[in-house]
């Protein structure tokens, strides 16, 4: 979860959101983090590099809980 938070906050920082965000299982990637499809693509490649799994391979994920479930963490 800590690694996931690092990845997400790095993507947010690159978009000019310097404030790290506290993630909860209910945090929604699009609505709460304002991730667009390009941010989600970036998230996918960084998560795959860190955890060895493509989180979007089996369909859309919506929340942090969905991501954790796909990753088994």
């Amino acid at each position: 979860m800590e690694k996931l938070a690092q990845i997400i906050n790095k993507i947010r920082a690159n978009k000019g959101n310097a404030e790290p965000v506290a993630l909860t299982p209910q945090t929604r990637l699009r609505e709460d983090l304002a991730f667009d499809s390009f941010d989600l693509a970036e998230l996918t490649v960084h998560v795959e590099d860190a955890f060895g799994k493509d989180i979007f391979e089996d369909g859309v994920v919506d929340t942090i809980a969905d991501v954790c479930k796909r990753l088994g963490i």
Binding site: N14, T44, V45, E48
Partner: peptide, 8 residues
């Protein structure tokens, strides 16, 4: 493209 994204 994914590789390019990974490396920014």
């Amino acid at each position: 493209i994914r590789n390019m994204l990974l490396h920014g």
